[in-house]
């Protein structure tokens, strides 16, 4: 029987001598809607990458739906959707929207691929409708707005019906309205499609109305819980070296020194 959760036990990850994550332990029951929050270099992306076996822990154990991402990375990746930071995407490659979503389908087919076009077209259109871009399937990906690009990348990730969706900084470079619309879409995937969500984000305010579980990370895990439990001085001051308060405003300054 597949146990429905992800679990990290005493996980430490190093890049050479640099510690990216230190002694991280937590467990999330499926389905969950969670955000990893922390300053630059906190290890948010590393944590997401570790969950799909792109980074190996130097110590500790990771379980994703009862699978070990180190031993079975491709099995894990078959049930997890991943939306990378947009900065890693080369938009000079002239792909159409439907091609980008097709990438998700092809990733789950073994070569040599045999394309059953009507079925594939249906899957692509269905995924694009879910993210609200049904009309744009023939457009060039590069000409879309930032918010639309993120939606296409989400369509690519959900076209294979994953159990877990990992998103790396989905709100970066979006305006306030696009952030809120995207947060609503991601929440709908969780509520209506029963997909567990784990996203790394600097900014969590667009998601706060949906009461996400928040993980406060800065190499170590400083807190995990709902906003009113973890967005408090005691936790934030530990995670953010430059934390300060001016009146009722908390400033989450990052220590770059």
């Amino acid at each position: 029987m597949i146990m429905s959760f992800i679990e990290l036990t005493n996980v430490t990850i190093k890049y050479g001598s640099i510690v990216a994550l230190e002694n991280i332990s937590f467990k999330l029951e499926h389905p969950f809607f969670a955000i990893i929050m922390g300053p630059n270099g906190a290890g948010k992306t590393t944590l997401l990458r570790a969950l799909i076996g792109l980074v190996k822990p130097s110590r500790g154990e990771i379980s994703v739906f009862n699978l070990d991402p180190v031993k079975d990375p491709y099995k894990v990746r078959s049930i997890v959707g991943y939306v990378p930071q947009m900065i890693t995407v080369d938009t000079s490659v002239p792909l159409r929207v439907r091609d980008v979503v097709l990438m998700g389908i092809i990733s789950k087919m073994k070569p040599p691929r045999v394309f059953k076009t009507p079925r594939i077209n249906y899957e692509i259109e269905r995924a694009l409708k879910v993210v609200g871009l049904g009309e744009l399937h023939d457009e060039l990906f590069s000409i879309l707005s930032g918010g639309q690009k993120q939606r296409v990348m989400i369509a690519r990730a959900i076209v294979t019906k994953p159990k877990l969706l990992l998103l790396d900084e989905p709100f970066s470079m979006l305006d306030a309205e696009a952030k809120c619309e995207l947060a609503e879409l991601i929440y709908r995937l969780y509520r209506e499609m029963n997909i567990s969500i784990l996203m790394a984000a600097h900014e969590i305010s667009p998601c706060l109305p949906y009461e996400p579980l928040i993980l406060i990370l800065n190499k170590k895990l400083y807190g995990i819980g709902k906003a009113h439990d973890v967005l408090v001085r005691e936790v934030l001051a530990k995670a953010y070296a430059g934390y300060m308060e001016i009146g009722k405003i908390a400033i989450l300054g990052e220590d770059h020194g």
Partner: peptide
Amino acid sequence: IFISFDEEGARAMG
């Protein structure tokens, strides 16, 4: 071409 477009995503997708 997909790998050229998004190598990180391609790895993550398997």
